[in-house]
Amino acid sequence: MKTVLVTGASSGMGYQIAQRLAQTGYQVFGAARHVERMEPLAAVGVIPLQLDVTKEESRTAVVHQLMERGQRIDAVVNAAGYGSFGAQETVSDAEAKRQFEVNVFGLMALNRLILPYMRTQHAGRIINISSIAGRFSSPLAGWYFASKHALETLSDSLRMEVRSFGIQVILIEPGVVKSRWEAIAMHHLDEAVAGTVYEDQAHAFQQNMDRTYASQHASEPAIIAQTVQKALESKHPRPRYVVGYLAKPIVWLTHWLPTWLQDWLIPQLM
């Protein structure tokens, strides 16, 4: 039985990932700030742990509990994260820093704690849940997109650093996936632009986002869970998995279109 730590397991993709892996025979430790939201997962064998990825003592405690109870760590799935939207002129320094603390610094700090155990085992997989946002940019979401660009770059670097130790680093890049993520991002957008010159732009942006996430084509979180399992079980996993509604078309467009055309097109899509 392989032991997997899944962060952000209290909702959305993290919840679905923890549930699916537990149901298919993994020993799963689900970690999140709100432990009570993981209670239903106990029915399928998920072991809940309290974790705030931004706090060093919390990260250390989780890894200690995991190794004490699981004896080893075969994989970590970093699904904890959130989207903080807003114009760069209006987003506070504190919120910008928190976006990076959760999506980048806390995530990578947890990986640092786990890496020595994986090196000792000469085996392990680190799966970072990124986003297609790590491939391009968008108005009114610069700090979120920047955090995903940072995660992508750090993951690429880490993959090359630890390959000789038998450790594989994998990025999952979801497109449009149904979850609480969009509502949280739009709440931050409302707060950031209220009473500013960006309100009208934000209103149009929000209408486009609501329409996209309400689409019948928007992917269910289960598709991400399936992809994570595939990445865990593949003999030769890909460095990146682009998955979910609009993911591949957007990545293709932003790779091939000139910048001036992207600047016009992306606000129409987001």
Rank of each mutant, 00 (worst) to 15 (best):
K2H: 05
V4G: 06
V4I: 15
S10N: 07
G12Y: 03
L21K: 08
Q23M: 10
V28E: 10
F29H: 06
G30L: 09
A32E: 03
A32Q: 02
R33E: 03
R33V: 04
H34K: 13
R37T: 07
R37L: 15
M38N: 02
L41A: 10
A42R: 15
V44M: 08
V44L: 06
V44A: 03
G45E: 03
Q50W: 00
L51A: 02
D52Q: 09
D52G: 06
D52I: 08
S58T: 04
R59H: 11
T60L: 10
H64D: 10
Q65V: 00
L66G: 05
Q71N: 09
Q71L: 07
R72D: 01
I73F: 11
I73S: 02
A75L: 08
A75Q: 05
V76W: 07
V77E: 00
A80K: 05
A80M: 11
G81D: 03
G81T: 04
Y82V: 04
G83Y: 10
G83D: 08
S84D: 13
S84P: 00
F85S: 03
G86Q: 10
Q88P: 00
Q88H: 03
E89H: 05
D93I: 14
E95I: 14
E95A: 13
Q99V: 10
V104F: 13
F105D: 00
L107E: 01
A109M: 08
A109V: 05
L115W: 03
P116D: 09
P116A: 10
M118A: 09
M118E: 07
R119Y: 11
T120Q: 15
H122L: 05
G124M: 08
N128P: 01
N128A: 02
S131K: 03
S131R: 08
S131H: 14
I132E: 02
G134Y: 04
R135A: 09
R135N: 12
S138K: 08
G142Y: 06
K148A: 12
H149Y: 15
H149T: 08
E152Y: 08
T153H: 04
L154Q: 09
S155F: 12
D156C: 11
S157D: 09
R159S: 14
R163Y: 07
I167P: 03
L171P: 07
I172F: 12
I172E: 06
I172Y: 07
E173K: 12
E173V: 11
S179D: 06
R180Q: 14
I184Y: 01
M186N: 14
D190R: 15
A192W: 04
A194S: 14
A194R: 14
T196H: 09
T196V: 10
Y198F: 15
Y198L: 11
D200V: 15
A202R: 04
Q206S: 15
N208G: 09
N208F: 00
A214D: 13
A214V: 00
H217G: 01
H217V: 01
A218G: 05
S219D: 01
A222C: 01
V228Q: 06
V228A: 09
A231P: 06
A231E: 05
A231V: 11
E233I: 11
P237W: 05
P237T: 05
P237G: 06
Y241P: 03
V242S: 02
Y245Q: 07
L246R: 12
I250E: 04
L253K: 11
T254R: 02
T254Y: 08
L257R: 10
W260G: 00
D263P: 00
D263G: 10
W264G: 02
W264P: 01
P267Q: 10
Q268G: 07
L269D: 02
L269Y: 14
